Amino acid sequence: MAGKAKSKKGNSANEKEPSPFAPAQIKKFIEEVKVEFTKIVWPDKKMSLGLTGIVVVLTVIISAYLGAVDLLLGKLVSSFLR
């Protein structure tokens, strides 16, 4: 009969979880977000500018490469179609 023993924890129909959209739950969520936001370590200005520069340079290089490939493939296709 040990296998038929049931836990009283999950059987109570009166125990309902509050709706996640209840005002109290929303307030609790916002407070938890504020606490987590204080734990964020933001990069300093020098790091941000350096990483932004890297992104800009790589964007220019990749766009030049893709533009050149597009131009070459366009010329190749147009030469075959003539």
Rank of each mutant, 00 (worst) to 15 (best):
E31G: 08
Q25A: 11
K16G: 08
A13C: 08
N11P: 01
A13P: 09
G10I: 07
V33F: 13
S7T: 15
K9S: 12
I30H: 11
I26C: 00
K27M: 10
K28C: 01
V33H: 05
K16L: 15
P20M: 00
F21E: 12
E32P: 00
K27S: 11
E15W: 07
F29H: 10
E31N: 12
A13S: 06
V35D: 09
P18E: 14
A13I: 09
Q25R: 06
I30S: 03
F21V: 05
G10R: 09
K34I: 12
K27H: 12
K27I: 06
K6S: 07
A13V: 05
K8S: 12
V35E: 15
V35I: 14
I26E: 04
V33D: 02
A24I: 06
V35F: 11
K27A: 15
N14T: 02
S7I: 02
V35S: 14
E17F: 07
N14P: 00
F29E: 11
V33Q: 11
G10L: 13
P18R: 04
S7H: 00
F29A: 14
E31L: 14
A24K: 06
E15H: 07
A24S: 10
N11A: 14
K9T: 04
K28Y: 02
E15D: 05
K8Y: 05
E17M: 04
A22E: 05
P23Q: 02
E32H: 15
K8L: 09
E17N: 11
K9E: 08
K27T: 12
F29S: 13
K28H: 10
G10V: 08
E32N: 14
K16Y: 03
S12I: 01
A13R: 12
N14D: 04
K16M: 11
S7W: 00
P20A: 03
K9P: 01
A22C: 01
F29N: 06
K28L: 13
I26T: 04
S7Q: 03
A24T: 09
V35T: 11
E31F: 10
N11E: 07
S12P: 00
Q25S: 11
F29W: 09
K16V: 05
A13H: 10
V33N: 04
N14I: 01
A24H: 12
A24R: 10
S12L: 03
K8W: 04
K8H: 09
N14C: 03
P20I: 09
N11C: 02
N11M: 12
K8T: 06
P18Q: 05
N14W: 06
E32D: 10
P18M: 02
P20Q: 01
K9N: 03
S7R: 01
I30K: 05
G10E: 06
E17P: 04
A22G: 14
K8G: 15
K9H: 07
K16Q: 08
P18I: 03
A22F: 00
E17K: 13
K34Q: 15
K6C: 08
I30R: 15
E15K: 11
N14M: 09
